[in-house]
Every structure is written in structure tokens, then in C-alpha cells.
Amino acid sequence: MSQCSSVWSFNPFSGQAWTGWRRAALQVCVAGVVGVTACGTSWAATLEGQHFDDTVVLGQQKLQLNGLGLRGVAWVKAFVAGLYVTTPSQDAGALLAESGPRRLRLKIMLQAPSSELTKSLLRRVKRHETPEAQARLAERLDQFAAQLDGLGELMPGDVVDMDYLPAKGLVLSRNGKVAGKPVAGDDLYRAVLQIFVGEHAIDPRMKQGLLGAPV
């Protein structure tokens, strides 16, 4: 397995170990504050050559880019993540509590099987959620995991969206093509989003970038 594949396989989500790499090599780059200026004018953002529009329309509602963060180690870059919300905020609790539509967009920068994302996501949900919450999520989490596995080999340039639509649930898509039926429940989406911006997020600096906060 190549170094690039190893980096992706061991940790696009999980903070457990970029096996073979020293901890000191971990390097997550983040965008600065992205959002609305005092006069109400917004702008688009680019991080590591990955462009994100300042707004998107989801479920007939306009969402604004809250922030960007790069997940990578040393010179190897896995993806840039962007978070879109109805009301930008630097408060993770407020974003997690929001009931409206949201979009977590990953712009892929490294070839890897989507099953590696699935494994990491399941590990993180198990670590973050209580046994009671895990029991409530189990069937739906399995459904979402199967959809994520079904994306197959991810390639540089691919765009993976994890959307939340209140009337439908979590909708997964790759390059604009929906992968399976929506999975109901804002609790499921919150469990996924917590991996990025929750109290025990995968990486504090990436969390700050997605929150649009200075680092």
C-alpha cells in the first residue's frame, strides 16, 4: 500500500493514528473566517486550490458557507471540508442544535475506497455517543454506512455531500448524484457533524476552520 493510501485509510475521520507517521507531523490547514462582512456582503473561499461557493441552495433554502478545513498529514492531503448552514456561527453548540437544512461538503484530494470513510465514521460515532444513543441510531447508521460504502473508489476531484433536509433526513451524494434513500433523523446528522465540530471533534484546528474561527 502506498503512503498516500495509508494516510487515507488510517484517518480521514479518526484521530487514532496515522500509522507510520510521527504525531508531530500532523498538519491540518484551515481557512480563516469565511462568511458575511459587517456590511452584509459575502464572498467565496478557496483552500488548497479547492473552491467553495459562498452560498448554496438546499431544499429551496439558501445556506451560507460557515468555514473550511483541510484534513491532511505532512504533504499528503485527503480532503477539504466545507460546512454550509442557514445562520453562520462560531458556536459549535448552536450549529449542532440547528434544526434547518445543512450541508457538509468534502472535496476529495486523495484516491481511496469510501469504505475507509465508513470505518472511521463508525468508530467515531461509537466513541462520541452514549450506549443509549448508539442503540437509537444503530439501524439508521447501518443504512447510511451501506450507502457510504456503495460510493466505491473515491478519486481526486470527487465531491461528497452529506446533506440534512428536515422533511427527509440525511441525504448522501457523490458529484451531485444521490446515493440511496434519505436516512431519517436529525440525531443521525448531528452524530455525523459532531465528528467535525463537536466537543470531541477529530481535530481542534479543523473544528476551528469549519467554525470560521481564527486559529
Rank of each mutant, 00 (worst) to 15 (best):
Q3I: 14
D149S: 14
K181Q: 05
H128N: 02
L137P: 03
A74T: 09
R205G: 03
R124H: 01
G157A: 11
A145F: 00
G169V: 05
Q27M: 02
Q147E: 07
L96Y: 04
S89M: 01
L47N: 05
N175A: 04
L141P: 04
A24V: 09
L188D: 02
S6P: 04
W8F: 13
V34M: 06
R105Y: 03
G152T: 02
F196H: 10
L154M: 14
F10Y: 15
Q134L: 15
A191F: 09
L170I: 05
L117D: 12
A17G: 05
V178F: 07
D203I: 10
L170C: 12
Q27L: 11
G180H: 11
R140E: 14
L141S: 11
G209R: 10
V33F: 14
V178Q: 15
A179G: 04
H51F: 12
Q60I: 13
Q60N: 14
S42P: 03
T46F: 11
P156S: 15
V178T: 08
D53F: 07
A45T: 00
I202Y: 13
P113K: 13
L83F: 01
W75Y: 14
L47I: 08
L210C: 13
K119T: 13
T19D: 12
M206T: 15
V159K: 09
R103L: 06
S9A: 15
K181S: 08
A184P: 07
A24T: 15
T118V: 11
E116K: 06
N11A: 14
R190V: 07
G152N: 04
A179T: 10
L210H: 00
P166Y: 02
S2D: 07
P88C: 03
V160H: 01
W21A: 05
M162H: 13
P204S: 03
S14R: 09
V125F: 15
V80F: 08
S9M: 14
F196T: 08
V80D: 01
G185F: 04
G157I: 02
V183I: 10
A135S: 04
N11W: 09
V73E: 06
C39I: 06
I108A: 03
R23P: 03
V33M: 13
R102P: 07
D163E: 00
V30P: 02
A97D: 12
W18D: 08
L121W: 04
T41R: 15
K77W: 14
D186Y: 05
V28N: 13
G157S: 04
S2H: 13
G20A: 02
R103H: 09
T46K: 05
L193I: 01
E153S: 01
E199W: 00
G49Q: 13
G152I: 08
V160Y: 07
E132I: 10
T130F: 09
G72D: 01
M155F: 06
